[in-house]
Computed example of a mutant assay.
Amino acid sequence: MKKNRHCPNKRELTPGEVAQRCGVAVSALHFYESKGLISCFRNAGNQRRYHRDVLRRVAIIKIAQRIGIPLATIGEHLMQFPAGKRISPKEWAGLTKKWRDELDSRISTLTRLRDDLDGCIGCGCLSMEDCPLRNPDDQLSERGTGAILLDPGGLK
């Protein structure tokens, strides 16, 4: 009797099986391992094998990457869930709450930048006193005269 390659009772998966099921390259799995996002174990023949929970972890990684969450942040958040442990719906809700907050902040910043971009057409970067993106409301004048390091994150 031939064994089904995608048998739900199969406890361990090869890198090729994980890659195929997740739609990523095997090299991506190795990269995720090197970053501590997923883990594998070695079988008796010293070949990489993955527990089935890695399928969910890779899906979470791909979702987070798609919405622009940096890998370092993904890693920080996934560290709270031990390798080999399935992430529960409650844990997923907590994780997505953090990511939603980050996205909301990013969306707010991008919306503000988009709306202020029209002001740049008139400014033409000829007037640092009147630039809505680099010096809104001439906030830099409060720091004194002369050359001032412009930190776009410092002006709000």
Rank of each mutant, 00 (worst) to 15 (best):
M1T: 10
K2T: 11
K2N: 12
K2L: 14
K2R: 12
R5A: 12
R5C: 00
C7Y: 10
N9E: 12
P15K: 13
E17M: 10
V18G: 00
R21L: 15
C22F: 06
C22M: 09
G23K: 05
V24C: 01
A25W: 05
A25R: 15
V26E: 14
L29W: 07
S34I: 04
K35C: 05
A44T: 10
Q47G: 05
Y50Q: 13
V58L: 09
I61N: 03
R66C: 04
R66T: 02
I69P: 03
L71D: 02
A72T: 14
T73W: 01
T73I: 08
I74N: 11
Q80G: 15
F81A: 10
R86N: 14
S88K: 09
S88T: 15
E91Y: 02
A93M: 03
G94E: 09
L95V: 00
K98A: 06
W99K: 00
W99D: 07
R100T: 00
R100D: 03
R100H: 01
D101A: 15
E102N: 04
S105G: 09
I107H: 01
T109F: 01
T109C: 09
R112Q: 05
L117H: 03
C123G: 12
L126N: 10
S127Q: 14
D130K: 13
D130Q: 12
P132Q: 08
P132N: 10
R134T: 05
R134W: 09
N135K: 11
N135A: 10
D137E: 09
Q139H: 06
G144E: 12
T145N: 07
G146S: 11
A147C: 07
L149P: 00
L150C: 14
D151T: 03
G154P: 02
G154V: 04
